[in-house]
C-alpha cells in the first residue's frame, strides 16, 4: 500500500469518516467562498488615516518611509537616500513598467541604473510593490518576469516604491487583489515584508541585517489627501 493511501486511511479511521457525511461538501464550500474571519478595527481605516497608520507601523519595525507627491519626485528621493546613507549612486531595479517609467535620467542623472535579477554584488535594489498593508506596515511583493524575487533579499538596501492606491488596511484585501490580478494561480512567490531583516538569536537582542536587507526604505507616492 502506498504511504499516501495508508496515511489518508489512518486519518479517516481516526476521524471515523463515513461516506456521505457531508465533510467533502463542507470543505468544498469553504474553499470556494474563502470567507473572511474577524478583521481587526485598525485594518479598516481609509484615506489619510490609512496612509499614516501604514507609515507609522512600518517605522515601528525600523523601515524608513518618505512621502513624495508625484512620480517625478521618486528618482531624486532615491538618489538623496543613497547619498544620506553613504551609498554609491548605483541601483539594480526591477524591470517593471511602473519603475521604468519614472524619469530616472532626467531627475537623477548621476544615478547608475541597471535592471534584472539581483547580483550578489548589488548594494541597492529598487522595486515596486503589489500592495502595502497598513495594519502592520507590511509590503507585499510577488515574483514574476518584471519582479525578480532576488531583488527583495540579496542587496543590503531595498527601496520599495508604493502608490497610495496600493495601500490597504488588512491582509484580506491583499488576497482579494491577488486573486483578481492572478485568476489562474498565485505567483510562485508572494513576499510579505515587514521591516528589514533582523535576528534575536544572539542573547535575544535585536540586530538588523541578518541575511536579507539591512535597510528597507519605502517611497510612498501620495499627494496630501490622496489615497
Amino acid at each position: 500500500m502506498s504511504s499516501r493511501k495508508a496515511i489518508l486511511g489512518a486519518i479517516r479511521h481516526s476521524l471515523g469518516r463515513q461516506r456521505g457525511d457531508g465533510a467533502e461538501q463542507a470543505v468544498e464550500a469553504r474553499l470556494r467562498t474563502h470567507d473572511r474571519n474577524l478583521v481587526p478595527q485598525r485594518g479598516c481605516l481609509e484615506g489619510e488615516a490609512l496612509l499614516s497608520l501604514f507609515s507609522s507601523q512600518a517605522e515601528r519595525v525600523d523601515a524608513t518611509v518618505e512621502r513624495v507627491a508625484t512620480d517625478a519626485e521618486v528618482p531624486e528621493a532615491v538618489a538623496e537616500y543613497l547619498k544620506r546613507n553613504n551609498l554609491p549612486p548605483r541601483v539594480r531595479m526591477a524591470p517593471h513598467p511602473d519603475i521604468q517609467a519614472l524619469p530616472w535620467a532626467e531627475k537623477a542623472p548621476l544615478l547608475e541604473v541597471a535592471e534584472g535579477r539581483a547580483d550578489p554584488q548589488d548594494l541597492v535594489s529598487v522595486t515596486p510593490a503589489f500592495a502595502a498593508v497598513a495594519e502592520t506596515g507590511t509590503l507585499v511583493l510577488h515574483s514574476g518576469p518584471q519582479t525578480p524575487t532576488t531583488l527583495n533579499f540579496l542587496p543590503e538596501n531595498h527601496v520599495v516604491v508604493v502608490r497610495a492606491s496600493q495601500v490597504v488596511g488588512a491582509y484580506e484585501e491583499v488576497w482579494d487583489r491577488l486573486r483578481a490580478a492572478n485568476p489562474a494561480a498565485l505567483p510562485r512567490t508572494v513576499n510579505m515584508i515587514t521591516g528589514p531583516s533582523r535576528t534575536g538569536d544572539i542573547e535575544q537582542r535585536l540586530e538588523l541585517g541578518a541575511h536579507g536587507p539591512r535597510r528597507l526604505h519605502i517611497v510612498l507616492i501620495a499627494e496630501e489627501g490622496d489615497s
Binding site: T136, L186, V190, T194, G195, S197
Partner: peptide
C-alpha cells in the same frame, strides 16, 4: 506584530 518575512510559495 508581524515577522519580517512571511513568504508564500506556490
Amino acid at each position: 506584530e508581524f515577522s519580517s518575512y512571511t513568504t508564500f510559495s506556490t
